[in-house]
């Protein structure tokens, strides 16, 4: 297993895609966090949707609610490039145990996922903190709840990378995997969360969507006032995210990785 982990890690870092996406993610999050912080800081106090610590936490939560597409794509690419370039053949020649192969892939993406998380959180703070500090109620970077949210943001991004690998195992076609991830993260889930939050009977469901669970882990959401939005307890949020990873991974093991390779 150790050798498989090293091999999978090397596969990831010997290609360029991950750091290109890391750069794009950093730049994009600086930009988005700056815009979001402006909507809180540059409006009169009475019109601001959120104020004080809530505003800061909502701004910083975009590392998840906007940034999560990047670790998902990085993770899914780690798996789908094996099929796109047929390197799966050589991978399974050296590691015929396909469960070991999949587990190694899932775990090996975590270091890069954590790095994406650190860069993503720093970028979000870099983009969001100045306006909050200068024009708003403060960047709140000394606040314990804000800091724990930032640290958990790093963990959330790493978990997304893992879910990406698992999803890539289920949808091994690279184009299909990326299209589905983009459609889901940019359209389906945001719309679903908005709609669900408007329906009282269904508002609790929103927190069980992948992005909702991740927001719960961070403890803040961009989808409204934390007091009115149902979020899961953190332990439950971790379990829900891991459950998504496990469900995709098991489904992938029983379909894609059970099939003949060739």
């Amino acid at each position: 297993m150790r050798a498989a982990l090293v091999a999978e890690y090397r596969k990831l870092v010997t290609t360029r895609m991950w750091w290109i996406l890391l750069l794009v993610m950093g730049c994009y999050l600086v930009f988005i966090a700056a815009i979001i912080s402006a909507t809180f800081a540059l409006v009169p106090q009475e019109d601001a949707p959120l104020v004080g610590e809530d505003a800061a936490r909502a701004v910083y939560s975009v590392v998840n609610s906007v940034g999560y597409v990047f670790p998902l794509v990085v993770g899914s690419l780690a798996m789908t490039t094996e099929f796109r370039y047929q390197t799966i053949t050589q991978s399974l020649l050296v590691e015929p145990d396909r469960t070991t192969f999949l587990l190694a892939k899932l775990v090996s993406v975590l270091p890069v996922g954590l790095l994406l998380g650190v860069v993503g959180v720093l970028a979000t703070v870099a983009g969001g903190a100045p306006l909050l500090e200068l024009e708003g109620d403060g960047a709140m970077l000394g606040d314990a709840d804000v800091l724990s949210g930032l640290l958990l943001g790093v963990v959330v991004v790493a978990l997304w990378a893992m879910i990406g690998v698992a999803f890539g195992a289920l949808v091994s076609n690279q184009i299909a995997a990326i299209v589905i991830i983009l459609a889901f993260t940019q359209f389906v889930e945001p719309v679903a969360r908005l709609v669900l939050s408007q329906v009282d009977a269904l508002s609790a469901v929103s927190a069980y969507l992948p992005g909702g669970a991740a927001d719960s882990l961070i403890g803040a959401t961009f989808f409204g006032d934390p007091a009115s939005v149902d979020l899961l307890p953190r332990w439950a949020a971790v379990l829900v995210m891991l459950a998504y990873a496990a469900a995709f991974a098991i489904a992938g093991r029983l379909t894609t990785l059970r099939r003949d390779i060739g």
Binding site: A3, T14, T87, V94
Partner: peptide
């Protein structure tokens, strides 16, 4: 194998080094 292929973005040496620990 004929269809066994390589990641185009990896160098030849990196391709071998990726599989080195497992073998």
């Amino acid at each position: 194998l004929e269809a066994s292929s390589f990641h185009p973005g990896r160098t030849g040496l990196a391709h071998l080094q990726v599989f080195a620990p497992q073998v």
